[in-house]
Design a protein around this nucleic acid. Structure first.
Lengths: 387, 387
DNA sequence: CCCGATATGGTGGGGCTGGCAACAAACCGG
DNA sequence: CCGGTTTGTTGCCAGCCCCACCATATCGGG
């Protein structure tokens, strides 16, 4: 239990981080507002902002023309030239982005692949893309780190991917490979866990401290967890794997598999089949389902929604979140009957934790994983802005 | 998002709290050891300890006679005269204790009741008991606060008991009633959540940062959660209610109820019936079960263990704890086949989170809830030792 | 157009805190 | 008895935040 930096220097670090975090997460704002929100002294905020500006992390702009008395307060904004490299290897494509402080995707690239790619190849591709950018869209930028969102189990401690079945990866030092190829330190995390962080900071769960996030993709159901305002990884970082849970199926006629695993019962393929289409993205699937006159489509959605509701009710009882965020095809299940889903969850959960609950669709779309991955990289910067 | 006290004064508070927490949780130790464990300077530790001793929170004792070179370092121990009042109202009895810094139950009282008692009556009884003690066993003690462990849903914010079915309480301001009757500030929490904290600090989950705790009592199954080293209450403090979850029952022949709620399927009454006894405490129940030659007893235990394993496997997938602690009759289920339970959980959970997992029986016995309740009261003292 | 009110930026001094270095004290082993 | 080792003690120093005072910029009214 060694806790370092409990001295005066630590106060400086924490306060610099608090100010930087504020403008990063909550957006540009005046020094006067920062003073009020942090509780620090005017002169202290002035000094902190000057230090951050000197390090190139924030920029001070002309005050907004407010119609108020008093001396105008300059606006402090996160620098657009401070970026993190975000990487998201998927089955059929490699997505790379540069995300600014403030959470904007400054530039992105997507390279399709026809077969699973080795870790070293991914790292080489990332290095090549970043090198290309450095002369163009990232000219003059400072790259403070990198993050990777991997669809699989990631050991948080060292960024080793233990198992990513759809990529064919097993015991791969992804963090090390990316760091070596690019010369930038990389943080690696599970894609759904990082998606949860993105939705909490910039999306549907903004300002919520206790969030359950579930994402439905073609390959299964992943999840992320934020409790007490902190991303929960568990002992080794594997937390959030709802997909392989045994679902509490109440109506035996709803069961389709003997084991009753959640992602076998609540499943994108079954929705595609019920809608009578073979391949479609989420928007097309939602359309096909809503236009289907066949009762089978609606019946299948209702069945999956019932099982999803039971799973969510269990999560509500155990974790008491203030909001549940659903992404991917799970958002389709929700959006087709939002009130019904919320009512079903409340009916099966205890009354008290159900009271304050809200269930929402994810908000960030295609940027989610890039923002989440970048956030993992920004974490160290926010913990110690001057490095 | 107002964060106060980010100045030098806050550093002092944090460091005083860190030193006090160390001797409180980890036991008496020399100043030299504290210096090493906190990373603070010798002179700083000396000053902090002197301040704490001046406030009567710790005592400095003669150095232990160690056979080592160098000047002996005095032992810093939490004061036995600093206590918190711990209250645990149950269906058939009211239990009150005074717990010292360091986690020792200095004095306790148990008053049987034959029918459910009103909140105000409980508060009056507690006040009377504490007043009795103040002239005797607590003479010269400083009471820094109180905590209550209630079997029901407790709103963390204000200590209001939303629902405690077995006590017949509903929307009761327990914290307020106890504070008014005793003149001491009270923190109120769910019994299982506080039990989890006790087991983490002084019991089976000592030094673990990610703990799932489940307790099986006569009235059902409650749970507590510690993640990242902090007690998890969720948005309103209701977290940990595993008992009313729909269990993922794999073998349909194991199902006994249509709904499949965990505490209806995994149940103390069913064990009593299978053992062929009518009433027994946990020790007697364990004995009766182990001595039963009837195959029914073993079959029922195996059935309940299977369902428990499925529930625990779900928790392992979602939360990735490093240890699961089982109390009450759930400990009986574990102890009758520890390896079988662990193997069953590992078989149904993902490999990675199952690797580092351990499943243990709770260790603190009858002191657990008193220690946990007192801990809730000590929390504020540790956050700001000089108040 | 001027002037008071208001709100904020800027600057220098002071208090608090922890770190550090030098010295003293207590113990061990020979 | 003496050197080596570890730790307590003391005085000084640097860092950081707060505060008081003054300067600056805007608004609204005469």
């Amino acid at each position: 239990m060694t806790m370092r930096a409990t001295g005066v220097e630590g106060v400086r670090r924490a306060n610099l981080g608090a100010v930087l975090r504020l403008v990063h997460h909550a957006g540009p704002r005046s020094r006067a507002v920062i003073t009020a929100e942090t509780g620090l002294n005017r002169s202290t905020v002035s000094d902190l902002v000057a230090t951050l500006a000197g390090a190139g992390l924030v920029e001070e702009r002309e005050p907004d023309p407010t119609r108020r008395v008093g001396r105008p307060s300059p606006i402090v904004a996160p620098s657009d030239d401070v970026v993190a490299i975000a990487v998201n290897p998927e089955v059929d494509a490699l997505e790379v982005g540069a995300v600014t402080l403030g959470g904007r995707v400054r530039v992105r690239a997507r390279e399709g692949v026809d077969r699973p790619v080795e870790v070293d190849d991914v790292a080489a591709s990332v290095a090549r893309i970043v090198a290309d950018w450095s002369g163009g869209p990232l000219r003059g930028c400072r790259i403070v780190g990198g993050g990777a969102a991997v669809p699989g189990l990631v050991r948080a401690r060292d960024g080793v991917v233990r198992l990513a079945p759809h990529l064919g990866w097993r015991e791969q030092d992804v963090a090390g490979a990316l760091a070596q190829a690019t010369g930038v330190a990389f943080a690696v995390g599970n894609d759904a866990s990082l998606g949860a962080r993105a939705e909490r900071l910039f999306g549907a769960a903004r300002d919520h401290a206790d969030v359950v996030y579930l994402n439905g993709g073609a390959s299964g159901i992943g999840g992320g967890l934020i409790l007490h305002g902190v991303a929960i990884g568990g002992a080794d970082g594997y937390a959030g794997e709802w997909g392989q849970n045994r679902a509490g199926i109440v109506l035996e006629s709803d069961r389709r598999t003997a084991e009753g695993m959640l992602e076998d019962e609540v499943n994108r393929s079954r929705l595609l089949a019920a809608a009578g289409v073979t391949a479609a993205d989420d928007a097309a699937l939602a359309l096909a389902l809503s236009e289907s006159t066949d009762g089978a489509a609606r019946a299948e959605m209702d069945r999956q929604r019932r099982i999803l509701a039971a799973t969510l009710a269990n999560a509500v009882n155990v974790l008491n979140p203030s909001v549940i965020v659903l992404g991917g095809f799970l958002a389709i299940l929700r959006d087709s009957d939002p009130d019904g889903l919320l009512a079903a969850v409340r009916a099966q959960a205890l009354d008290a934790p159900g009271e304050g609950l809200d269930i929402r669709a994810a908000a960030l779309g295609a940027d989610r994983l890039l923002i989440g991955a970048a956030e993992a990289a920004f974490e160290q910067l926010l913990a110690d802005p001057l490095g």
